[in-house]
């Protein structure tokens, strides 16, 4: 009997030739709670060749957003983040910064050594601050961790409005509206 089968998982997938039968399932995934594997048993039967499992982690990653990116900076309220994979595909619900500027990604993996990489992306700020929409990453060696993120206040811009037919003649009063494309 070839049991137990050790199936190596890479990027969410593993492949193995398995005899038909009933099996108990266990997991060895660094950074995750191995006892949380589901389902814990599986029937491998002829004609069915794909089987899906899930596993949970228990760490908390706090994303602290301020104007200057320091722990004591002015908090930015209403910034949103999502967890992603390395390519930027989003998974799960987004989280939003509270009055302290904190958004918490829960159930993320951590490990003292060889911790999995956690990818996340900021998807919006509060409308008055700049933000980066580039996918960022981190690893956690303990169950909680905080990352300081800067969302700079929008810079003051000077808008000039002149008469199209009289070069440089300023328009005395009026309003220019800029709308996001």
């Amino acid at each position: 009997m070839a049991s137990p089968y050790n199936i190596t998982i890479s990027s969410g997938t593993g492949e193995e030739g398995i005899l038909n039968g009933s099996y108990k399932v266990s997991a060895d995934v660094t950074g995750y709670e191995n006892s949380s594997i589901e389902p814990t048993s599986v029937n491998v039967v002829a004609g069915t060749n794909t089987y899906s499992f899930s596993i949970a982690a228990s760490g908390s990653l706090t994303l602290h957003v301020t104007e200057d990116g320091t722990s004591s900076g002015t908090p930015v309220v209403g910034a949103t983040f999502s967890r992603t994979d390395s390519k930027g595909t989003k998974y799960g619900d987004s989280v939003t910064t509270d009055s302290s500027g904190n958004a918490v990604l829960v159930n993320v993996p951590y490990a003292e050594a060889d911790a999995p990489i956690i990818y996340y992306v900021q998807t919006s700020s509060d409308g008055d601050h700049e933000f980066s929409s580039v996918v960022a990453s981190t690893t956690m060696t303990s169950s909680t961790s905080t990352i300081e993120i800067q969302n700079s206040a929008a810079a003051t811009r000077t808008i000039n409005l002149t008469d199209a037919n009289y070069a440089n003649l300023p328009i005395e009063s009026g309003t220019v509206t800029l709308t996001n494309n």
């Binding site: 137990p4 199936i7 998974y91």
Partner: peptide, 26 residues
């Protein structure tokens, strides 16, 4: 049977687990 096994994050539906191992005990 040559079977494919998928392992994803329980709390982030569809997020693939980068690396690990499943063990099947008959």
């Amino acid at each position: 049977n040559s079977s494919t096994f998928y392992l994803t994050d329980k709390n982030y539906i569809g997020l693939p687990i980068e690396r690990g191992e499943l063990r099947l005990w008959q």
